[in-house]
Design a protein around this nucleic acid. Structure first.
Lengths: 183, 183
DNA sequence: GTCTATATGATGATAGAC
DNA sequence: GTCTATCATCATATAGAC
């Protein structure tokens, strides 16, 4: 079997990803704080110290699970330019939908992840989104309306995570647009 | 000083309330999970075992902090009858605003409170609210719109907790009504 | 009602052999 | 890369004196 064959289940250098997969599943299911390294290692059939070969600390493992969402979000708010608000809401919904499992994990456990400054970062992302949606000079009322819109969409991505995207996104985006007061 | 005088700062039988006050503050500030009984007792100037005279367990203390919100919510969804949706949204906003500090605490730490079944209970409350808002036969689209409305209002009570109620409530309720598609 | 002292049990992490 | 063995730390909770 040639070396580029991807058909084998696991291969050399793959343990790191297997650890991350198991960790993500447990973190999402039962919370970051309630998942111990013992539990993760047991499910993988290895011992606890073995984890430390792949990750410097438990912290490090947690961060590596969250990083993709953070990167995607940072890129989104950095590269976007002001434009059609409905389009922005749609693309933003796609983004949170893509990461909805990790999003649930983060939202349900903000205090356990406080050291990662996630609360403040999410705040900053939202402020930036509001500027992209409504321009730099927003009234307080517009800000509140935008909070209903964006917060409501997040709730949908979480609450209807099991439904098909096509059934949720259009309605959620329209509701958000109405909350925003878009024509 | 007559015995009915309420002017003394603390009195006999008052320790239980003082414990709850300190606990609530610490729970809200730094999370339930990150607050130890040691920390609570130290701030009160008593020892850890003393707490166990007033509460059977740590669990018991946590529950006693959350109970007022739970009771208020249960009563709200139980006693209400279907009626003017805008009025319902307004009264509901008052309710979550009244308990916004504990609400933040709960939402940021749902997984740490998983054993209290709060996730499922909040779900049930929301389902009941949606029936009160839109009647028993709601389409999926209406359900999604209602989720944006109610979830968005909750976000506002949390995010603008420091502002005066009068500046937040009218706008948040109007945005929610628009998300719902109310005329 | 509050104290001292202690039981008990997790957890994250490290040392060093293979 | 993974193991065995172990450490230090911190938590909730209890026993029993005052």
């Amino acid at each position: 079997m040639p070396s580029h064959t991807p058909s084998r289940r696991t291969g050399p250098g793959d343990t790191k990803r297997r650890i991350q997969a198991v960790a993500r599943e447990l973190f999402v299911q039962q919370g970051v704080r309630d998942t111990s390294l013992r539990q993760i290692s047991e499910r993988l059939g290895i011992t606890k110290p073995a984890l430390y070969y792949h990750f410097a600390s438990r912290e490090d493992l947690v961060k590596s699970i969250i990083q993709p969402l953070v990167d995607d979000m940072e890129r989104f708010v950095a590269e976007r330019e002001a434009g059609d608000p409905r389009r922005l809401l749609t693309d933003y919904f796609d983004l949170i939908w893509r990461h909805r499992d990790v999003l649930v994990m983060i939202v349900r456990e903000l205090s356990a992840l406080a050291h990662l400054d996630l609360g403040e970062r999410m705040f900053a992302w939202r402020r930036r989104l509001i500027v992209l949606l409504l321009g730099p000079d927003v009234t307080q009322a517009q800000h509140i309306r935008a909070t209903v819109a964006l917060g409501g969409m997040s709730d949908c991505a979480v609450e209807y995570a099991h439904l098909p995207l096509d059934e949720v996104k259009p309605v959620a985006v329209e509701a958000a647009a109405d909350a925003l007061g878009l024509p």
